[in-house]
Amino acid sequence: MSAMRRSVSEAFWAMCAADSMSMPVHWYYDINDIRRDFGGWISGFNSPPERHPSSILTLSNTAGSGRTNWSSGAKRANVVGSVILHDKLELWNSSSGSIHYHRGLQAGDNTLNILCSLRVARTLVSRGFVDVSQPDARAAVLSDYVHFLTTPGSHKDTYAESFHRSFFADWQESKPTSPHEVLKFAEERSGMKTSSPFPDCQLDAIGCLPMILPFILLSASANEERAVSAAVEFVKLTHPHPNVPEYVTIYSRALHAVLGGASVREQAEQALRRLDAWDACQSFSRKAAKFSVSSEERLKVHQSAVNYLGMACYNKGALSSLFYLAHEFHDDPKGGILANTNCGGENCNRGAALGALLGAGGAHTGKCIPQEWKDDLRDAQEFIPDILKDIV
């Protein structure tokens, strides 16, 4: 296996591992709840508990983006329960305020966003796209995405974040399904939403990264501009917000460089400088260095850093936290994935992108995630071997 192919492989595995590790404590904003619910800090894959201590699932808008009480104007038809998440509407409407976002998943399962990412990769390699930056590649991916999300029983997750709900709230008006039709719909929708004087802030979120990861990973041998273009042109269709392309570009350049053998630590520093977060991160890094690598005291510094930089989904803060952890764990994918999980907040999508970066770098240095983790990742075991066998 070539060094670059090994880097792509490890990026996929680490992406899935980081998402699955964080899934039971996704959006735990009080990190003490992690220790309480799991008898200590997370150290392996777990099923989600029945109760989520800070769930606001029942406040989420079942007809589109955001929260129910944010919607205005004419009432739109539900997408949850009718177009997507066909058997989950009861949970979204539950009188209980503690429904876990990922009820239905088990230890080693991946969330909906990572399932979508794996399907992106499988579509791109099975269709034989040599250049995944081309419109036909985006069209094929979007057509498969529509089929997957609108097919009852296609996955077990309970939650679909705002970008899914927004996409299908608009999609249900004409219901395009063929690659050409879905691409045309998505491009027209993107143009309207991006130019709106009031863009949807819920789309300027770290959940924009999972589905673009395969476009970068499968462009590892292409030049940087083509790889970045592949990611940016696709994300415009799922997250039509004027800020998103800049953030996706920052991340994509870093991942593409690491796939080619660049230092994770150096790429993280460059990204943090672009995000105006380098000075703050240096301060936390110096504090962390005072404690032993595996100590709880050091973990607490990382938790404080993520809390300061951004625990939530919004891109600037989430990316700052992501690259801080990448810098600190540049040579330790396993440690970085566990730290990300135990920092709480939006740790699934942040973790998936962090995992891809650390996995890609670890392949070049011989620091990979444990084989037992790979063995326990059910969805990854189903997808990744087929994806890799079709990569030249």
Rank of each mutant, 00 (worst) to 15 (best):
residue 96 S to A: 08
residue 98 S to P: 08
residue 98 S to T: 14
residue 98 S to N: 15
residue 100 H to K: 06
residue 102 H to A: 05
residue 106 Q to L: 15
residue 107 A to H: 02
residue 108 G to C: 06
residue 113 N to H: 15
residue 114 I to S: 14
residue 115 L to D: 14
residue 119 R to D: 07
residue 120 V to K: 14
residue 121 A to M: 01
residue 121 A to I: 04
residue 122 R to Q: 14
residue 123 T to V: 13
residue 124 L to G: 08
residue 125 V to A: 02
residue 126 S to P: 03
residue 127 R to S: 15
residue 127 R to Y: 13
residue 129 F to N: 00
residue 129 F to Y: 04
residue 129 F to D: 00
residue 129 F to R: 01
residue 130 V to K: 15
residue 130 V to C: 09
residue 132 V to I: 11
residue 132 V to K: 03
residue 133 S to F: 10
residue 134 Q to C: 12
residue 135 P to D: 04
residue 136 D to K: 08
residue 138 R to G: 15
residue 140 A to E: 02
residue 143 S to W: 00
residue 143 S to Y: 01
residue 144 D to Y: 04
residue 151 T to D: 10
residue 152 P to N: 13
residue 152 P to M: 12
residue 152 P to I: 10
residue 157 D to C: 07
residue 159 Y to P: 03
residue 160 A to N: 04
residue 163 F to V: 01
residue 164 H to K: 08
residue 164 H to E: 10
residue 166 S to N: 07
residue 166 S to Y: 03
residue 170 D to K: 03
residue 170 D to S: 09
residue 171 W to E: 03
residue 174 S to I: 11
residue 180 H to E: 13
residue 184 K to D: 15
residue 185 F to W: 02
residue 185 F to K: 01
residue 187 E to Y: 09
residue 187 E to I: 11
residue 188 E to F: 00
residue 199 P to C: 05
residue 201 C to N: 13
residue 205 A to Q: 11
residue 208 C to A: 15
residue 210 P to V: 00
residue 210 P to D: 01
residue 212 I to C: 10
residue 213 L to F: 00
residue 213 L to C: 10
residue 214 P to Y: 08
residue 214 P to H: 06
residue 216 I to E: 04
residue 218 L to T: 10
residue 220 A to G: 14
residue 223 N to R: 13
